[in-house]
């Protein structure tokens, strides 16, 4: 969520929903886990509203959103440049510096792609749920996730690994 007002609204709605439902919270999970669960739904609501205004399946929007995946490849379908070896940076990947770079790279992605990507990879929403809620086909979702991954990978390679 890039717009700070919308983020604030989502937090507010989450706390409100939590207050209204606090009897139902039987302490089965930590409070944070419970709140994050509600927040996930609120974020999904927000995305759904935005998707209604600008349908994700709109071919024009899709074209607009295009991370130019073709530019990564030569005409014969091979990578233009050999990809770098990132090594095995699991540890450095957990540092705050990495999260800052990641945030910046997500900001470079077209907003729609970034949203879908975060929904799928950070919030671990199921493919079926995303497709249903945002009324897109799985094939379309896969294409958009592919573009998001290509864009993100390239950005990370440039600004973090290098």
């Amino acid at each position: 969520m890039r717009d700070p007002h919308k983020a604030e609204e989502a937090v507010q709605e989450t706390l409100l929903a939590a207050l209204q439902a606090r009897e139902r919270f039987a302490g089965q999970a930590s409070t944070r886990t419970w709140l994050i669960g509600i927040l996930k739904h609120k974020v999904m609501d927000q995305f759904r509203r935005e998707a209604r205004e600008a349908p994700l399946d709109d071919p024009d929007a899709l074209a607009d959103d295009d991370i130019d995946t073709h530019a990564c490849f030569a005409e014969d379908g091979h990578w233009h440049e050999r990809l770098s070896d990132w090594g095995n940076p699991e540890k450095t990947l957990q540092t705050n510096q990495f999260w800052a770079v990641l945030q910046r790279c997500l900001d470079f992605l077209p907003a729609r792609l970034a949203r879908l990507f975060v929904l799928r990879e950070v919030m671990e929403e199921e493919t079926e749920t995303i497709c249903q809620e945002l009324s897109i086909t799985p094939t379309n979702l896969w294409t958009m996730l592919y573009r998001a991954r290509m864009g993100l990978r390239q950005c990370l390679e440039r600004s973090w690994v290098a």
Partner: peptide, 26 residues
């Protein structure tokens, strides 16, 4: 080689991103 690296990078990205929620929780 490049596609092997690509595959490793995507796997890494998924694993790391999936720790983010856990991080937010703690």
């Amino acid at each position: 080689v490049s596609c092997r690296r690509f595959a490793r990078q995507l796997g890494l990205l998924r694993r790391v991103l999936r720790t983010l929620l856990r991080r937010m929780e703690t």
